[in-house]
Design a binder for these strands. Structure first.
Lengths: 128, 128
DNA sequence: TATAAGGTTTCCAGTCGCTGGAAGGTCAAG
DNA sequence: CTTGACCTTCCAGCGACTGGAAACCTTATA
């Protein structure tokens, strides 16, 4: 398979796939013409990566997950640990965003939003 | 004021303040020794920036907000527009994270997390 | 007055995860 | 034989810092 084929299958841009090769996540074979020649297994890996990334795992976490995926002797506990750590991180981010959201919502409600210069949002940002 | 003073006042690292000068958000005066010499107004601006950044506004949004803050003829509607756009973005991010969270939570619950290789998380990532 | 400690300066490089673009090689169709 | 679509590599840039090196300046103490 050429790169555009695996790109279509995985949903990842060709550029991203080349980047993933650069950082050692996939190692496709090469044809005589120098083109990358992806196996079904490579395509599978890329789909795995696309899905993992879409769940917010970092590249390094994806590398770990991929290694676990390829290791038939893995303990499911190892996978679970990675996922749970990621969940904690997601919760942290959500909480952070919710806090911003709350503050901003209040400020926006207080602002007239007309052509007068008076603005509680700016007043808040200026900090008294 | 030296940079460590405004750093302490604003809560921003000195490095960040230098960076903000680089990109033109503040323009502190310089003493004879070449040291930056921050006025109260500079310190105020930096506090404004710190607060804006902590609410998740991008640097460019901060630049806009700062310009509005300094413009006595501003219309509060302009400020409100920026804040509302940012709120929309926050909501988008929260929704994205919540979706990840939901999927991951389900997967984590389904995983035994013992020393056996069998793992629904990996099965999901592999996509059937 | 010498010196040491600590603050400040600039500049360059790295982070993360791509993404865009240039310059060139290859392939399939007409 | 040409066109156009694909592929290759390499280099640069995004956002918002952060770390570190080398050199200069200031302040406190011996």
């Amino acid at each position: 398979m050429n790169i555009s084929d695996v790109s279509a299958r995985s949903g990842l841009p060709a550029k991203t796939i080349r980047y993933y090769e650069d950082i050692g996540l996939v190692r496709p074979a090469r044809g005589e013409n120098g083109y990358r020649d992806f196996s079904d297994r490579d395509a599978h890996k890329l789909a795995f990566l696309a899905r993992s990334r879409s769940l917010g795992f970092s590249i390094e976490e994806c590398r770990t997950l991929l290694a676990l995926y390829e290791d038939r002797e893995r303990a499911s506990a190892d996978v679970k640990r990675v996922a749970e750590a990621h969940l904690v991180e997601i919760d942290r981010k959500v909480a952070e965003l919710q806090a911003m959201r709350e503050t901003l919502t209040t400020l926006v409600h207080r602002c007239h939003g007309d052509d007068r210069p008076d603005c509680p949002i700016l007043t808040d940002l200026a900090g008294t």
